[in-house]
Design a protein around this nucleic acid. Structure first.
Length: 469
RNA sequence: GGCGCCAUAGCCAAGCGGUAAGGCACGGGUUUGCAAAACCCUGAUCGGCGGUUCGAAUCCGCCUGGCGCCUCCA
């Protein structure tokens, strides 16, 4: 079906993509702990895995895409207390905002969005299994995973347990058998949200929910398990330990896929550093598509350097692609397809798939799209018939869509309550131009420009757009 | 201290042994009533020093400068 290769964090090399079930992909992507609004680091992860999912689907795979919400943990409890609301209300609001923003970024909905708090049953079942097999032990209402009972511990993040022990800066909990052991279940403190369990009221630890949910929703082992690079250790390492110990099978995930982290001002962008930009701040300016293009223009595993200039640069590039992808204003005429353009479209199609097959190297695929766009614009400039260009144009739109890049004109072009007045001014100006009243027509253009409205005169008439800033 | 990653034109960024993709910006031009958009032209020998090779941005070593993980984090 394909010759796709995927970089696997665990082996640190690209491997041929072979799924558990032929033609089907089980993909689990670690979502968020909703205690604050989403920033563009989350946006990058969202888009990276959306592109992977879209491409695999395009390649004929049936993709089951699960994304979770870890909707109970210390940060959530703390934040809810600060705001004087219930943890549930906090997470509910943030999750619905997440869905809205995700949709606005043109991210396809996942197959399912399980939440930790709604999967307590499977989580408890898994913990019981781990205790029964000697991989975990209860202490005073807590349950810990016995790291040294799992020989493969450290294989994902390439660490050995003795180095970890030496470097451990964690405050040592004397009740644990070993400082490395981590919590599967935490006993509830007074006033905390809790669920009944064989060990008393409590809540799941951080890592167990993903192990339980991925197995529950994807039938045990998975093909792709993804997330940001900052999840490799300890989160995913611990997931492997729990899941493989519980399932008695390996690998838990065939391909560990991690996106590079967004950097801002030379540092990782994160909530804890406070140097983040919210996704919403980008969406409000209509720059969602530009943001996606910016992400596509760098390889997903490499840290992304984010800057305002970079975002605007992507917006300008996107505009050029949109110009190329725009349907002929006057409709299609009679003309045979242009041979040269068709040939280029075919070459671009090939380059596109070759690049994406090779570990989803979108920057190269996008470069091919730009070449096609330039050729289309050139052909139009040379006066070629719209029908002659149409096949190439359709190819451009088709391939952009595979990447989730929407090339329809920028949102808000004709929107806004002032649109009728702007239309009127533009019409008056057209009359003035017909009468060669250039001083007045230029005045209107300049004044509109001061109001962030840009005019563009074409043989077919004048168009206006709102400037993105 | 342990484990990794990165350093390519003004900025972003591909490249994975065979002679530097693409985007943005700048400058020149075509087009335009003038603009805008679009198109054309213009720019780098790849952090430094050694080594391997017929041949290296690509492999090895050292150096310098960044970054990530080891603690919550997409």
């Amino acid at each position: 079906m394909s010759s796709i290769v995927v970089y696997n964090t665990q082996s640190r090399r690209k491997e041929p993509f072979v799924t558990i079930e032929p033609g089907k992909v089980r993909m689990y992507v670690c979502g968020v702990t909703p205690y604050d609004s989403a920033h563009i680091g989350h946006g990058m992860s969202l888009i990276v895995f959306d592109v992977i999912r879209r491409y695999l689907t395009h390649r004929g795979y049936e993709v089951r895409h699960i994304q979770n919400f870890t909707d109970i943990d210390d940060k959530i409890i703390n934040r809810a207390n600060q705001e004087g609301i219930a943890a549930d209300d906090l997470t509910e609001g943030l999750i619905s905002a997440w869905h809205e923003e995700s949709a606005a970024l043109n991210v396809l909905p996942a197959t399912a969005y399980p939440r930790a708090t709604r999967e307590i049953g499977p989580i408890i079942e898994m913990i019981e299994g781990l205790i029964a097999s000697g991989h975990a032990y209860p202490v005073d209402g807590d349950v810990y995973f016995r790291v040294r009972a799992f020989p493969g511990y450290g294989k994902l993040s390439n660490r050995n347990v003795d180095d970890l022990r030496a470097g451990a800066r964690i405050e040592v909990d004397e009740r644990k058998d070993d400082p490395l052991d981590f919590a599967l279940w935490k006993a509830a403190k007074p006033g905390e949200p809790s669920w009944p369990s064989p060990w008393g009221a409590g809540r799941p630890g951080w890592h167990i929910e993903c192990s339980a949910m991925s197995s529950t929703y994807l039938d045990g082992q998975v093909d792709i398990h993804g997330g940001g690079g900052d999840l490799i250790f300890p989160h995913h390492e611990n997931e492997i330990a729990q899941s493989e110990a519980y399932l008695g099978a390996e690998p838990f995930a065939r391909y560990w896929v991690h996106n590079g982290l967004v950097r801002s001002g030379g540092e990782k962008m994160s909530k804890s550093l406070g140097n983040f930009v919210r996704i919403n701040a980008i969406l409000e300016r209509g720059l969602g598509p530009a943001f996606r293009l910016m992400i596509l223009q760098s390889q997903y595993r490499v840290p992304l350097t984010y800057s305002e200039d970079g975002l605007l640069a992507a917006e300008r590039g996107l505009d050029r692609l949109r110009t190329a992808a725009a349907p002929a204003a006057a409709g299609l005429d009679e003309a045979p397809p242009d041979a040269g353009l068709c040939q280029l479209a075919s070459t671009v199609d090939h380059r596109f798939h070759e690049a994406m097959d090779d570990d989803f190297t979108a920057p190269v695929a996008v470069a091919a799209l730009f070449d096609l766009g330039t050729a289309i614009n050139r052909a139009r400039g040379e006066g070629k018939a719209a029908a002659a260009i149409e096949p190439a144009r359709l190819k451009l739109v088709e391939l952009a869509e595979v990447l989730g890049l929407d090339l329809t004109p920028a949102a808000g072009v004709a929107g806004g309550g002032d649109a009728p007045f702007i239309d009127l001014l533009v019409r008056v100006r057209s009359e003035l131009r017909t009468a060669k009243q250039w001083q007045l027509s230029d005045l209107i253009r300049d004044e509109l420009s001061n109001l962030e409205i840009e005019l563009e005169d074409t043989p077919a008439g004048s168009n206006w757009t709102r400037r993105t800033t």
